[in-house]
C-alpha cells in the first residue's frame, strides 16, 4: 500500500535528522532533551491527530488553533471565576474535572459546528473553518477581555506539568490518543468509512454511507482534540493566554503533510502524522541547539514541507 511506503520515507528522514543532529551537537541525544522534544510536540500531536482525520476525509480545518485558545480560556475561566447565572442570582463553581469537561466540550461543539456548516450548507471546508477561526478568536477575546487568566492551581496544572512513572503527563495524553486513533482508523467501521469518503465521496454516497454524518463526526472529533490541546497548553503555563495557539493550525497541517497524508483525502495514516510531528519537533529543537536564528528555522521548515510533498508526489505519479 502506498501510505506505508510514504511512512517509510518520513521514517528515513527522521532517522537521518536524528543522526545529523547527534553529530552536530552533543546536547541533542540526551534523555532530558528527548523528553523535552516529546513534551514540546505533544500539543501539536493532539491537534494533528484531529487534522489527520479531517484531511483523510477530504477536508481541512483552519480553526484548530483558535479553538485551542477558546477551550483553554473557557476551562481556566470557569475554574477561576465560575459562571454567574443572573437569573437565579447564583454563581456556579467548577471543580478541576468540571473545568476540563467544559474545555473539551467547547472544542467538540465548535468542531461540530464546523461539520454542520460544511455538510449542511455545502461550504468548502477551507472557508467554513476560516470563518470559525475568526469566530473562536473573537469569542476568546470576549471571554478573557484580552487579558490572560492566571493562577489556576496545582490540580489544574497536573495534566500539563505532572509526571507519571517518569513520563510527563502531556506525553501520556498524546500517546494514549495516538494509540486510540491508530486503532480507530485501522480497525473500526468509522475508520474505513473515513478513507472511503475521502477517497471517493460519490462512490461512498452511492454505497449507502451517510457521508454528511461521517464528516460531521470528523470535524467534531477535530474540535474535541483541539480542546484537549488547549487544556494541555493552559495547564502547563498555569495561564490561559488570549492569543494561545496562534498559527498552530499551520504546524499541524505541516505535520500531517510531512507524514505522507494526501491533502486530497483518502490516503494517509495517524502513525505517519506522528512521524511528521517528530520531524518538525526534532528540527525545531536541533536548530535551536545549534543556535540557528529563528528566522532561518522558519525558512528551513518551509523547505522541509515542500520537499516532503514533492517526494511524495514523485512517488505517487509513478505508474
Amino acid at each position: 500500500m502506498p501510505p506505508r511506503f510514504a511512512k517509510f520515507q518520513s521514517l528515513i528522514a527522521l532517522v537521518l535528522m536524528v543522526v545529523a543532529m547527534t553529530l552536530l551537537s552533543d546536547k541533542f541525544l540526551t534523555p532530558d532533551n528527548g523528553w523535552n522534544i516529546l513534551r514540546q510536540i505533544s500539543v501539536n500531536l493532539c491537534l494533528s491527530i484531529g487534522m489527520t482525520l479531517i484531511i483523510l476525509s477530504g477536508g481541512i480545518d483552519l480553526s484548530v488553533g483558535a479553538i485551542l485558545a477558546l477551550a483553554g480560556a473557557v476551562a481556566a475561566g470557569v475554574l477561576k471565576n465560575g459562571v454567574a447565572i443572573p437569573m437565579f442570582d447564583a454563581l456556579l463553581q467548577f471543580t478541576v474535572f468540571g473545568a476540563i469537561v467544559c474545555g473539551i466540550g467547547v472544542g467538540l461543539i465548535l468542531g461540530w459546528f464546523n461539520g454542520f456548516v460544511v455538510t449542511r450548507f455545502n461550504i468548502p471546508p477551507f472557508v467554513a473553518t476560516l470563518g470559525m477561526f475568526s469566530i473562536a478568536r473573537g469569542m476568546t477575546m470576549l471571554w478573557t477581555g484580552g487579558f490572560p487568566i492566571t493562577g489556576l492551581g496545582a490540580g489544574f496544572g497536573y495534566p500539563g506539568t505532572g509526571v507519571l512513572l517518569g513520563v510527563p503527563m502531556p506525553v501520556w495524553i498524546s500517546v494514549v490518543l495516538v494509540a486510540a486513533f491508530v486503532i480507530i482508523t485501522r480497525k473500526t467501521r468509522f475508520g474505513r468509512y473515513l478513507y472511503a469518503v475521502g477517497g471517493n465521496e460519490r462512490a461512498a454516497l452511492l454505497t449507502g454511507l451517510r457521508v454528511n454524518h461521517i464528516k460531521t463526526w470528523v470535524y467534531t472529533l477535530g474540535g474535541g482534540l483541539a480542546g484537549v490541546a488547549g487544556l494541555i497548553v493552559t495547564s502547563r503555563l498555569d495561564s490561559a493566554q488570549p492569543n494561545a495557539g496562534l498559527g498552530y493550525e499551520l504546524d499541524s497541517i505541516a505535520a500531517v503533510v510531512i507524514g505522507g497524508t494526501s491533502l486530497s483525502g483518502g490516503r494517509g495514516t495517524v502513525l505517519g502524522t506522528v512521524l511528521g510531528c517528530l520531524i518538525i519537533g526534532v528540527l525545531n529543537n536541533g536548530l535551536f541547539l545549534l543556535n540557528v536564528s529563528p528566522f532561518w528555522q522558519q525558512i528551513i521548515k518551509g523547505f522541509v514541507i515542500l520537499s516532503a510533498v514533492a517526494i511524495d508526489k514523485m512517488n505517487t505519479n509513478k505508474p
Binding site: 500500500m1 478513507y195 472511503a196 462512490a203
Partner: peptide, 18 residues
C-alpha cells in the same frame, strides 16, 4: 472509476464497503 469504486482502496475494502 468515478462513482463505483474507491480507487485508493484494495479489492477487499471495496468489496466489503456496503
Amino acid at each position: 472509476k468515478r462513482e463505483g469504486l474507491v480507487l485508493g482502496m484494495s479489492v477487499a475494502e471495496n468489496a466489503s464497503l456496503a
